[in-house]
Each structure stands twice: as C-alpha cells, then as structure tokens.
C-alpha cells in the first residue's frame, strides 16, 4: 500500500491575509513565494475593523467624501502597497508588472470589496477588502472562492485565535509566526496514523521539492511501542519522498506528542501536520494536537486539511 493523494499545483488557490504595510511584509512575501513556486493563484485579503454599527453610516459618508479628496480607505491603501510588493517580488512577471492599482476600480459584492485588476494571463492575483471579525471574514472568503490554503501572519492574539483559526477555517492553514523570509527553514513533517497524514506528506513533499528545504519526518508515540498504523504511515511517507528523489531524515520518538513537536521544532523548522479528525465538540472541549501545537510553538506551522 502507498500514498495515492496527488496535488495538482496549477489548480491551487492560496489566500494571504494582511493587516498593514508595517507588519504584513513577511506574510505577503511567503504567500507570494509559495504561490509562485506552486504556480497557484493568489488572493490577498485585508481584513479591517468594522465601524461600530451606530456610526457606520457616518463613517461611510466620510469615506465617500474622502474619495472626493483622493484619500482612499486605509484597507485599499494597504492593498495598493501589497500589489507594489508583489511586483517587487516578481520583477519577471510582465503581466503583474503592467497592472496599475486604481482605487476607483473597486466592486462591492458578497459583503466584500474587490479591487478590479485586468485579467491578463499569468497575473492570477486578487485583491480583496473585508471588514469585520478576522476568523469570520476569512471563513467567508475561503468558502466563497474555494481557497486551498490560507496564509496568516502570527499575531499577538495567536493563542486566543488558535482554536478558532484551526477549527473553523475550511482550508489548509499556514500560520507564519516569527517568520523570516530570507531564512532557510527545515521542514518538520509530523506523521501518524490519522487520515490527514497522507495529505500532509503530499504538501510537505511538494514544498520541499519547490523550495529545496531539507525534510525531517517525525513520528511520536505516547508509548514505547509504535503500532502498525504509525510504522506504516512513516514507511509510506519515506516511500513517497523516495519516489520524488527527496532526501529525508526520519525519527521515532516516545513522549508527549505536542511537547515533542514543539521541542524538536526549536526555532529553525516549519512544522507540517494534518488537521485533527477528532469530533469538533471534543476539539472544542479538549483541544487537539494542531491547536495545542500552534498555541505553544513560535515557528511557522502548516496544518493540512
């Protein structure tokens, strides 16, 4: 038996959530980098705070008036910056380079504002403005556009949001905590007998292949005995990587899974693990390995769904 799950990179859709030009540079950089190496389309979404409903119409009236003075919404300003950054990341992308940001070319639809960009071949970038609570807005955006991966910066509210992000976003999630764009990370791929392992392996292999990052496959068991499921999953992962000619290191460790993941990852790995298949109510009450790992680690983490 072997893993059969295949990712079709050219059909992938990634979503990068940004908050400001001050803090979102690394997130946007990583989003654009992996969208580029995967040849995926990239949505960039700015989720801003929604004005208190009492004064919402006064705020809208002011914004309309600000338009007359050519002062645009702070969210559109951030998206304008994002487009400029994307162009800088990909100077070779002629289609992207030719696109000019125009704050007048925006379209309100489905509770969001979309910046209209020319649909030139090779561009495949969407700029979206949303207002409201972060998890709710990201969930709506992912459901609307069917994104495969959401890329989110690590915020100070991470621990508070960890559970909601993992449990409610219906896509794979890459949380870039303390991410340094120029740093070469090692991939720490967590393999066990869960259903999501097969997809994690496929994502890990593809990232390793595209970015050239070294891979360490880790299997952790609470008992000294590694069951058939664990052993089989680890073997199949190795076979998968071998078939793609990617060298790996592999470890089997006994201990508490979450503590082991966190300790092993240190500060130089990017963790890849599958989303929990536990009943959502149990996850809410007791947490899950991804939720606990995200809450405790400070390195980037990809949770594959």
């Amino acid at each position: 038996m072997k893993y059969t799950y295949k990712i079709k990179p050219e059909s992938l859709k990634f979503l990068t959530a940004i908050s400001s030009s001050e803090y979102s540079g690394p997130t946007l950089g990583m989003g654009s980098l992996i969208a580029s190496v995967f040849d995926a389309s990239l949505g960039v979404v700015y989720v801003g705070e929604k004005a208190n409903e009492f004064h919402g119409s006064s705020v809208n009236l002011t914004r309309k008036n600000l338009d007359n003075w050519n002062i645009i919404h702070p969210g559109l300003e951030t998206l304008k910056w994002a487009l400029k950054e994307l162009k800088a990341y990909f100077p070779e992308n002629v289609a992207l380079g030719g696109i000019q940001f125009n704050a007048d070319h925006v379209y309100k639809e489905n509770g969001r504002v979309r910046v209209l960009l020319p649909e030139e071949k090779g561009c495949r970038v969407e700029l979206i403005l949303r207002e409201g609570e972060l998890v709710d807005q990201l969930r709506k955006e992912i459901q609307l556009e069917g994104y495969d991966l959401a890329i989110i910066g690590g915020s100070q509210n991470k621990r508070h949001l960890a559970h909601s992000i993992i449990q409610y976003l219906p896509s794979s999630i890459l949380v870039l905590q303390k991410f340094k764009p120029r740093k070469k990370y090692k991939l720490l791929l967590l393999v066990d007998d869960s259903d999501a392992t097969e997809k994690s392996v496929a994502w890990g292999a593809l990232i390793a292949e595209k970015l050239g990052w070294p891979v360490h496959i880790l299997t952790v068991s609470k008992t000294k005995r590694f069951g058939k499921g664990y052993q089989g999953a680890a073997d199949m992962a190795k076979t998968y990587f071998d078939s793609m000619n990617i060298e790996i290191e592999q470890s089997f460790i006994t201990g508490d899974p979450v503590s082991t993941f966190v300790d092993f990852a240190g500060d130089n790995h990017m963790i890849i693990m599958g989303a929990s298949t536990l009943n959502p109510i149990k996850q809410l009450l007791f947490g899950s390995k991804p939720i606990k790992t995200l809450a405790r680690t400070d390195v980037p983490i990809l949770i594959v769904r």
Binding site: G48, A51, N52, F54, H55, S58, V59, T62, R63, P74, E77
Partner: peptide, 16 residues
Amino acid sequence: TAVAAPACTIIYSSGL
C-alpha cells in the same frame, strides 16, 4: 473610546 461619539468613530476609521 472610539465607539461613543460618531466623530470619534470617524477619526478612528482613518486607521491613523
């Protein structure tokens, strides 16, 4: 706070 008066909400919405 930014919620009490419309004028306060308006300047807060500038993001500045």
